Simulated assay, not measured.
Amino acid sequence: MIALMRIDNRLIHGQVALVWTKYLGVNRIIVANDDIVKNEVQKATLKMACPSSAKCSILTVEDAIGVLNDPRAEGLKIFIVVNNPRDARRIAEAVKAVPAVNISNYGHLGNDLHSRTRITDTVYIADEDFEEFARIQKTGKPCHYQVVPDNPPLDLYELIEKVKK
Rank of each mutant, 00 (worst) to 15 (best):
59 L>C: 04
66 G>C: 01
2 I>N: 11
126 A>E: 15
133 F>Y: 14
45 T>A: 13
60 T>G: 12
152 P>D: 15
144 H>Y: 11
89 R>Q: 13
17 A>G: 14
139 T>D: 08
139 T>P: 05
164 K>P: 01
119 I>H: 03
150 D>W: 02
60 T>L: 01
161 E>M: 03
156 L>G: 01
62 E>I: 02
140 G>C: 03
121 D>T: 09
155 D>T: 01
144 H>I: 07
30 I>N: 05
149 P>T: 06
145 Y>D: 01
126 A>G: 10
91 I>F: 12
148 V>H: 06
108 H>M: 15
15 Q>C: 02
17 A>S: 15
133 F>K: 08
67 V>P: 00
62 E>N: 14
132 E>C: 08
26 V>G: 01
74 E>C: 06
75 G>Y: 15
58 I>L: 09
8 D>H: 03
66 G>V: 01
32 A>T: 09
151 N>D: 14
122 T>D: 15
70 D>S: 11
38 K>L: 05
83 N>A: 09
75 G>A: 13
57 S>F: 10
129 D>R: 01
114 H>Q: 12
25 G>P: 02
41 V>K: 13
4 L>G: 00
150 D>P: 00
151 N>G: 00
130 F>D: 03
112 D>N: 07
117 T>E: 07
27 N>M: 07
133 F>G: 03
28 R>N: 10
120 T>D: 04
105 N>Y: 15
125 I>H: 10
39 N>E: 13
107 G>E: 03
135 R>Q: 15
20 W>V: 02
67 V>H: 01
110 G>E: 07
41 V>Y: 13
41 V>S: 05
156 L>I: 00
122 T>M: 08
41 V>L: 15
58 I>K: 06
143 C>T: 09
128 E>H: 11
135 R>P: 00
